[in-house]
Computed example of a mutant assay.
Amino acid sequence: MSLYLTRMPLLAGANPFVTLYEDDQPTAYASVWRVDWSTHGSGNVVILWTPGQLRIVGDDVRLAEWIEEQFVRNFPEARALPSWPTAKVERASVSVRWSSARAGDITISLDGVLDARPFAVDDFPLRGVSHGLSMQILPCSKATVSVGGVAVPGSPQVSWDGGRPASSAVVTVHEAWSV
């Protein structure tokens, strides 16, 4: 008989994200958070990396700082970028819908859902600590990021491995983190 490991819940919500590429070089990485519940409150956050710049926009500064420090900067997608500059949180209204977000002058949209499948792992290391993660993932074929009405160049990278699609643009729902 195996023992069930009870974990402390940290966060429940959704985290659509996208890395855009042009000529195999990243042009933007956006991480969108709809936090329905967390140990640091609820709210919406958009984190946008472009070469040489990082923007963190949230309707709750404390929550936005925690999301960037605890989660986003430690994700493989962020760690693969050429840099991760220091940034101050911009307090602004953030609107998050299922596959899109608007935060100040930033607009993010994902489309062209290729698949829907559950994902769960009980050892996702962040900052040297094992975390539990479960969610439904929906890889997408299309995504756009614009700042001030100007589209960031690039598109998501999509691949098919054994008939299963993978993409650098993913909508997640029912996302839950624990320690």
Results as ranks from 00 to 15, higher is better:
residue 90 E to T: 11
residue 13 G to I: 05
residue 118 P to E: 05
residue 145 V to N: 01
residue 5 L to C: 13
residue 1 M to Y: 00
residue 155 S to K: 14
residue 74 N to V: 06
residue 18 V to F: 07
residue 94 V to Q: 08
residue 23 D to P: 05
residue 61 V to P: 14
residue 93 S to G: 08
residue 155 S to Q: 10
residue 80 A to C: 06
residue 2 S to L: 08
residue 38 S to E: 05
residue 74 N to L: 09
residue 3 L to G: 06
residue 118 P to H: 06
residue 29 Y to L: 08
residue 54 L to P: 11
residue 150 V to Q: 13
residue 24 D to L: 13
residue 138 L to H: 15
residue 14 A to N: 07
residue 103 A to Q: 01
residue 128 G to I: 04
residue 124 F to L: 14
residue 130 S to Y: 04
residue 149 G to T: 03
residue 130 S to W: 03
residue 30 A to T: 07
residue 101 A to R: 01
residue 124 F to N: 05
residue 33 W to E: 07
residue 69 E to F: 09
residue 98 W to T: 06
residue 53 Q to G: 08
residue 34 R to T: 08
residue 132 G to Q: 07
residue 119 F to C: 05
residue 161 D to F: 06
residue 36 D to K: 09
residue 52 G to Y: 09
residue 87 A to G: 02
residue 99 S to N: 14
residue 179 V to A: 15
residue 42 S to P: 06
residue 122 D to S: 12
residue 165 P to A: 05
residue 88 K to T: 12
residue 127 R to I: 13
residue 25 Q to L: 10
residue 167 S to A: 08
residue 162 G to F: 03
residue 56 I to D: 05
residue 76 P to D: 11
residue 117 R to M: 07
residue 139 P to I: 00
residue 123 D to F: 02
residue 176 A to C: 13
residue 150 V to I: 11
residue 45 V to T: 05
residue 62 R to L: 03
residue 19 T to I: 12
residue 41 G to M: 05
residue 24 D to G: 01
residue 9 P to I: 00
residue 65 E to F: 03
residue 36 D to Y: 12
